[in-house]
Simulated scan of single mutants.
Amino acid sequence: MLYVNNNETIIPAEEFSIHSGSRAFLYGDGVFESIRIRNGIPINLENHIKRMLEGAKAIKIRVPSYFTTEFFDIRIRELCKKSGITLGGFCRLSLDRMNGGKYKPETNDAQFFIEVKPVDHNDFILNTKGLEVDIFTDLKKQKNMLANFKLKNCLLSIMASIKAQERQLDDLLISNDTGGILESSSSNLFVVSNGVLYTPGLEEGCLAGTMRMQIINLAIRNNIRVYESNILPQNLLVADEIFLTNAISGITWVSGYRTKRYFNNTAKRLTHLLNEYWDEDLNNRLI
């Protein structure tokens, strides 16, 4: 049985009901993080909490000082243990404005909600079959002060996912008002050309992904050059590889964009390095 933690009340997941006046439900008034579980432990949690708290501050949710990495680490581990998740898993941590009010809130105080689910693999596994992608043209992502955070209002990603399904593609890439390609419906974007990694800069409006940051750091440590730069459709057509990153899947390689085909050598190498990094992290915790 899986359990959730609704602002310090732990109940079975199937028994959860939304309280009347929930601002998260009514208005998408909050931020969230998707956190990978390995060996029953949330990984990269400090960076997730940092981004979540910065996002809450940006939308003027007042967060208590005790909402720290340690605070949420204890509660996520407790929930994993109670839900029987001892290896791979997924955690969604939400931070919402407390109930009450309409567009004008009655309070800016915060409440949290944690849910966990098992995933099939403990390690990050590179997809066997590459994704087929194209560019989403119906809507653009705005470059503004909220663009780098994971907000509860995800309609842009939902519409891109539906459009991809209608076109019988695996995903669509989202761009900004100036034509720069930012990300997919659920992941950050990396392009590989001549052994060099390119990824959109945060100033372009892409999500400040925790896995994006880790891949950049891993690449630099292993003498792979990385540049944050504007990526245009023509850059995709001359690339050797394209891969996507997010906290849950790790790295997902793209095999095709329109008529262009891609390799996955760099994606394979970085997936190996990613698992090595977290295995070493676990060993250090056990010493």
Rank of each mutant, 00 (worst) to 15 (best):
Q234H: 09
L45A: 14
S255F: 01
I49D: 07
S161K: 15
V31I: 08
A56N: 04
G21Q: 14
N44T: 06
K57M: 06
R285F: 09
R75S: 03
M213D: 15
G209E: 08
L26G: 01
G40L: 06
N246R: 06
T107L: 01
T86N: 07
L270I: 04
K143I: 09
D138F: 11
I11D: 10
D279N: 15
F149N: 04
R258I: 15
L172M: 01
L286G: 00
L93H: 05
D120V: 04
T86F: 03
Y262F: 14
R97A: 01
V192A: 04
S175A: 02
I10G: 10
L79Y: 13
G55W: 06
G89W: 11
R258K: 15
T210Q: 04
L45Q: 13
F149C: 05
N230P: 00
D134Y: 03
R62D: 15
L282T: 05
N265K: 15
K102W: 13
T86D: 05
Y66I: 03
R75T: 06
D170P: 02
V238M: 10
L87R: 13
E54Y: 07
A160K: 14
S229Q: 12
L146R: 00
L131Y: 11
D138P: 00
L237Y: 14
G180N: 10
G28Q: 06
P64T: 09
F25Q: 04
K150V: 08
F112Q: 06
R62L: 13
S184E: 01
T259D: 11
N235D: 15
V133P: 02
E46D: 09
G84R: 07
H121A: 12
R225C: 10
G205Y: 00
L53G: 09
K81C: 05
F32N: 13
E46Q: 08
E70W: 08
T128G: 05
L146P: 00
L79I: 15
N275Y: 02
T137M: 11
L95D: 15
M211A: 15
M98S: 14
F90K: 13
N148W: 03
T266D: 01
L207T: 02
T68C: 08
